[in-house]
Design a protein around this nucleic acid. Structure first.
Lengths: 214, 214
DNA sequence: TTCAATATTTAGGAGTCCTAATATAGAGTC
DNA sequence: GACTCTATATTAGGACTCCTAAATATTGAA
């Protein structure tokens, strides 16, 4: 098979595709910046704060944004100046607690489905493909998390309430012990508010059951 | 099925996953910036120029980077100052032709596999999954291209040499009329130097044959 | 000759990013 | 009480990214 020898390895081509999508996303995020809008980093921060109504200290925000503390401080001050974020004293000495103002909350909710054009493109896949794609995305993100290449995510597959492949049938083989209900690959979450990491051994055992080695 | 009603729609969760990967990529690209290195936009431009040994005018570079002409002009001047890019007069009036210097070429080649950690994560999928993932990625990117959300890509599925599903067997059902050889989903390219767009009707017919509606 | 179209650059300003240095509050030590 | 250590955030300064609007230069057409 000639193409097996002349092709760039498939994993690299997949990576290139993901990188390309990343570029488009970044470029699009800037288009929405305008005078009224919010820049990419600011938008990202708004999303983080929406999921943390109890407030977050600056250091955590910086870590999740993947930028240095000064960069995060700058961005937060801009958001405060725009009236989208509030700074309050935090629990620890010298720490602050960042929260959304009502305006900020409204803006964060309005952009919850960002970017719609990518969601639209994903919807051109049929439902079974979407489920398979999500499952593989989960695998990729978990692999990065295990290598410390990405901050820990609140994913089903690392959750103490996760029970993979315990039900018959392909539609909903897994079980969520938090809501005590069965679910399938298409329901896998990357950002579950209820998620709590399981112990290391449980995680490993669950993973073997979820994704048996080929 | 309770999760069908309480879950965020699957396409949105997929989008969120892709967005997250995009964030990591951006953040990582900056870590490699340092005094010796190159910033994310500059690195992206280097990659574009590597694939265009004949040189590119500024406007095209700006379009492919997804930034305005002034931004691209700035970045190119910085690369020229760093000795990685050469500016020569272009074919059209007042136009310039941007190429890599030998140093630039060496750097671009050294980072061809960027980012390796993502390639590593993709490799944790088994080969069949990688092929399926690539195929879906192609679908998603094509959908974006059709909507004008992403600059045209040099993809197999829009190429005049593409003959989808003309061979028996699952391993290599497609045919590339340029090299006159069969190939499979795992060989699909997003960035083929030989690619030339097929006519609209051919593309549509090929697509129906490649991805029959569910 | 003048005008329009094209391609790039300049100007100016906000935002993103970094590293290094600088507060500042509290905890532990003498 | 003063000394120091640690954790957290900010300031300072510089390079780069990003935009819009305006300026510049060149060719080809009216």
């Amino acid at each position: 098979m000639i193409f097996d020898t002349i092709s760039e390895p498939i994993a690299r081509r997949v990576t290139a595709g993901l990188v390309r999508i990343g570029h488009v996303l970044r470029s699009r995020a800037w288009k929405g910046a305008g005078p009224a809008g919010v820049t990419p980093t600011q938008g990202h921060a708004l999303g983080l704060l929406r999921d943390a109504p109890e407030g977050l200290p600056l250091g955590i925000v910086a870590g999740r944004l993947g930028v240095s503390a000064p960069t995060a401080s700058d961005a937060m001050n801009t958001l405060v100046a725009k009236g989208l974020v509030l700074k309050a004293p935090g629990a620890k000495p010298r720490s602050i607690s960042l929260r959304l103002t009502p305006t900020g909350e409204a803006l964060a909710d309005a952009t919850r489905d960002w970017p719609a054009f990518l969601t639209g493109a994903v919807e051109t896949l049929d439902p079974a493909e979407q489920a398979a794609f999500l499952r593989m995305l989960v695998k990729i993100i978990r692999a990065m998390q295990q290598n410390g290449d990405i901050a820990p995510q609140k994913m089903c597959v690392t959750c103490r309430y996760f029970r993979p492949n315990v039900h018959e049938g392909a539609s909903a083989p897994h079980h969520c012990a938090f809501v005590d209900a069965p679910f399938g690959d298409r329901h896998l979450r990357l950002n579950c508010p209820e998620q709590e990491d399981a112990g290391e051994e449980t995680q490993a055992a669950n993973w073997r059951r979820f994704a048996p080695a080929a």
